[in-house]
Every structure is written in C-alpha cells, then in structure tokens.
Design a protein around this nucleic acid. Structure first.
Lengths: 116, 116
DNA sequence: ACGTATGGTTTGCGGCACAGACTAGTTTGG
DNA sequence: CCAAACTAGTCTGTGCCGCAAACCATACGT
C-alpha cells in the first residue's frame, strides 16, 4: 500500500508511480483511457507489445485494481475484455499531472545552497 | 503547440527511451535543463535520490553522453560538477515530446480490426 | 486425424534500480 | 598528534521486474 510519506514540507516530490510509469503500462493505460473498453488483441496491436508482455502487464494492472479483465467467448474464441476502472482513470490522470509538474519544474522549492 | 503532423503510417511512437524515462534520471535531466549547471550535492537535494543512486545514474548518463561530469576541488573538498550536453538537452526535449504525443494519443493509426 | 491459426499464460533469464557498506579526505576536539 | 565525526562520492549485493520464447488450449481447414 502506498503509505503517505509527507514528511517533506515544501516540495511534495515527484512520486512517479513505477507501476504506471513503465512504458508498456503507460501505453496500455493511455490507450484504454481513449477507448473506454477494448480487448487483448486490440491492445496488442495498439501497443506493439508481445502477447506475453501484454499479458503480464495486464495481470499487474488488474492486481493493482487499475483495470478490469473480463473473459468471455465470442464466436467460440476466447476474448479478454479490458476496461479502465475509476481508480485507474484517476491514477493515470494523476500521473500525467505529476509528469507535467516535473516538466515545469522551476520555481520549485529548491534553492542553490547559498553556502560558498 | 507545434501542429506536428504525425505521418499517419505505422505508428512508430512509443519509443520511450528507458535511459531517460527512468524516474531518477528524468528528474536529474529535468533539473539540469533548468539550471544549466550544478553539482552533486545540489542534485541530490533536488532529486531526493540517495548518493549511491544518484552516483550510478550520473555515471550512466555520462556514459551515454547526456551529461558531462567535471571533478574539481573547492575549499579542499571534492566537487562534482554536472552539465547537460547538447545531445542531452536534445534527447530530453525529444522525450517530453514523445510523452506528449503518447498522451494525446487518439486518432492515431489504430483502428478496430474490422474483421470478424 | 493432423497441421495450422488464434488467443493467451507461464517460465527463465538478464538487466538494472536501489541503498547500504566502503573509501578518501577534512575538520574538530582533547 | 591522534581520533572521532563530517563531507563527498563510489562500489557492491540483492531483489525485483520487464522481456520474449516456450507452452497450453481451442477452433478450423482438408
């Protein structure tokens, strides 16, 4: 569980969630957030990930409660549907936020140590 | 906003350079790009990385030619100066670009495979 | 029945981030 | 003068995790 470490007065530092930051996952989540729902094969095409890779990423995202996986059969073939949960949607948005914050890093709390 | 045309063909996107994408390094590079030059201790304060961590990240960045390290002595104490190289500056800018592109991912080349 | 295609999971390996131990030198204090 | 303590940084071990190949299951063509 992400314990709240807010001992740092001033800059609430860039806690870039590795789970989300990981390129593969970032891609998955980004795709998901623009197409509400899709399936495994679509995701694979979209992200260019290998099956195995995609599969394990999806497992992690599911475990973390960021996506929901629903397995069904369509035309007698397995179909793995994936949807972003509310939490997931929030987390990814937050992540983009953090990134932007990092990018605009400037006036942020750090001063040149005046010693010298 | 640069009205950049994405040459519709195969989306070659998603080439998120792990070297740069890594949070620690992303932080370092971002700091560097806003303060042209600084030293080890400053970077450590700014990024909240541990010494060891920062040290190894810097080595990698140097190896990759993204930063330049210059060791001197100031007041008889070692001082490790760090500067972003031209390449580094370009690469980080490009990375932010890629991220933005990913974020705005939408109309991108992927269509629902119409076959069924 | 067999080969091939589709859809997905599990496994093993390799790379790498992380932080704590270590080095090197300097200042302080007794 | 010697020793603790502090500063500045590097090195090393460990564990996690991304990666894709191997594998499994089912469906379809002939």
């Amino acid at each position: 569980m992400p314990g709240s470490e807010m001992s740092g007065s001033g800059n609430e530092e860039l806690i870039l969630d590795r789970l989300i930051h990981e390129p593969g996952r970032l891609a998955i989540l980004t795709v998901l957030s623009s197409v509400k729902a899709c399936d495994f094969v679509f995701l694979q095409r979209a992200t260019r990930l290998t099956k195995g890779n995609l599969s394990s990423h999806l497992s992690k995202l599911e475990e973390a409660g960021l996506v929901e996986i629903e397995k069904t059969f369509v035309h007698k073939k397995p179909k793995t549907g994936v949807t972003l949960t509310a939490v997931g949607r929030e987390r990814i948005a937050h992540h983009w936020d953090q990134l932007e914050r990092l990018r605009n890093f400037s006036e942020e709390s750090i001063q040149e140590p005046a010693q010298e």
